[in-house]
Amino acid sequence: MSGHEGVIEFEGVGHAYGDRVVLEGIDLTLTERRVAFVGLNGSGKSTLARMINGLVLPTSGRVRVDGLDPAESGAAVRRKVGFVFTNPDSQIVMPTAGEDVAFSLRRSGLSRSERARRAAEVLAEHGLDGYADHPAHQLSGGQKQLLALCGMLVLDPDVLVCDEPTTLLDLRNKRRFVELLGRLRQRVVLVTHDLDLLDDFERVVVIDDGRVVADDEPAPAVKYYRDLVR
């Protein structure tokens, strides 16, 4: 990908729940293939990530993905943006791995058998070959998160937002998951606490108390963050 698809723009974005301000004055244009949001719990980084696919709408300012505003064209934006959450158990919605991936294709107009075939293909491409008929709840934590990722990748989005996808995984599965992210053609926005997974990223945005406090390459940004939390 050349970086022309899935450009994400935040323009004076703010968000408040009642009186509680969680984000304020965010101006960012994300054109890099690998971007990470780093920050403490409650810093607002998750809320910012959720704005990319319109799960949360800003209370001030604008968000645009490829020029589309999620507030106006939520459905169109969600077709461009895939989202992986922290807890794989709540992302797997159907009883078997194959059915779960095929769920994403329910409105594709493909026949049932074609949907099942596409699902099995995507599973096979990402290390879950032969698991299509496997009960989803019997997968390991790492496999479940892979399955959640497959449920998004089968739709071939331009952007993949991952909200702390490795928090519940062991170290090996963390590494494996991030390696896999590195190979994807998609633009990836990763929200994370795992600072040692960021080496291959092009840009790291540090968010603290609802504001961008650093925006740099991984090494200086991570150093800034470590100083911040010390």
């Binding site: 729940y17 969680v22 409650g42 998750s46 809320t47 959720r50 799960l55 949360v56 709408l57």
Partner: peptide, 8 residues
């Protein structure tokens, strides 16, 4: 995880 919106 904060999130607020009308029931979707």
């Amino acid at each position: 995880m904060p999130a607020s919106r009308s029931a979707s």
